[in-house]
Design a protein around this nucleic acid. Structure first.
Lengths: 193, 193
DNA sequence: TGCCTGATGTCAGCAGCTGACATCAAGGGG
DNA sequence: CCCCTTGATGTCAGCTGCTGACATCAGGCA
């Protein structure tokens, strides 16, 4: 991170990173598949945590709630890393390749969640959708958490995001109209032939 | 695609691709930012289409419905490309780098959708969530479309996905939600074409 | 002591990608 | 009809990411 912040991501060579760690470029590539991968350490831990967390959710919990609970459980993990997360995020903002990597990690979390749900008896289209929806909430919540001037908890943002998602997906969607108390026709009217 | 299928993605060199097109490697990189990017031509078209489609949705439409309608409108675009899409998908299945690229394209669609919704007066957390949720539905629907032995329309799968998402995000209601009745409401919630 | 194993270093080499410059063809104005 | 501009392409050199093959070295263990 230090090197990246000083010289920029792509003007930092892998050889330099390795040297800073007292190692060789070759050794670097034995620990990290990629130059990008240095920025994603510990993602396996999150992965594992989410899966076990979903598995441990009391039976009868709604799928989306199970995923949300798992995501909330990572709050302490990020608690003291807000500054680091912000630095990381500003790297991602500049370099699309890094965003790509972030996205595939999140997608992997989504499909792991789906698998965990399936193991609980959730049937297929629902499991994947719950996983994806949960991750969508997390993405939005995480960004808002980083920017939040009030510095509210990450879990708080996740809950807010969940509520908002529920509102948005509710059959007759609120939050839409600039015109206040307009009750739009049922969703069927929005369909195009 | 031919080259990729014959020799595999990473055993196909950019020079070979360019040669097959009667050009030079250098010229290739003037048209494509990346080796990966050859597989993602036309994504700007989709992007644009979605945005205008959301903008043209009748006012008062629920945000998620607007996004879904926009996504459904791409059905004819894929209609005759199912085989090609499948070939592409099997490349993606093998090569994570390509999946990364796909994901960032989809994410870009999601944020474009969110922007389009915002322009319609949808407030912020809702807009992003609707965009992400819509794309989530699309991802799942697209995969199911590719595998569907009955070869139903892509738009059909999108509708089913939307319904399923709505069911999954519905507030945890009375009936035990973890496992709904075996042959679920699919038919009951079917839409009028 | 001597062997095995795992971590690291060394080296050579390919492929992706870029900048700088040359070339060439088409078209428009003089 | 010629010349000049412009845009597309080719050529060349070079860096960096990344990999395979092999050497080295240290620690543990028989």
């Amino acid at each position: 991170m230090t090197l990246f912040q000083e010289n920029g991501y792509d003007r930092t060579t892998v050889e330099e990173i390795a040297a800073r760690a007292g190692l060789t470029e070759r050794t670097f590539f034995r620990y990290f598949a990629d130059k990008k991968e240095v920025l994603f350490g510990g993602s396996e831990a999150l992965h594992e945590r989410i899966v076990t967390c979903i598995a441990d959710t009391p039976p009868g919990t709604a799928p989306l709630d199970a995923v949300a609970a798992a995501l909330e459980s990572m709050t302490p993990f990020f608690k003291d890393r807000r500054d680091h997360a912000r630095a990381r995020q500003s790297l991602l903002a500049v370099h699309a390749e890094l965003r790509e990597r972030e996205l595939i990690k999140l997608a992997s979390l989504a499909s792991a969640s789906a698998a965990a749900l399936r193991k609980r008896g959730v049937t297929e289209p629902a499991a994947s959708l719950a996983g994806e929806a949960g991750i969508a909430v997390f993405k939005v919540a995480f960004e808002r958490w980083l920017e939040d001037p009030k510095a509210q908890d990450l879990s708080r943002h996740i809950q807010l995001g969940l509520d908002e998602l529920r509102a948005v997906t509710a059959r007759t969607g609120p939050g839409a109209p600039a015109e206040p108390p307009r009750k739009p026709a049922k969703t069927a009217s929005a369909r195009k032939p």
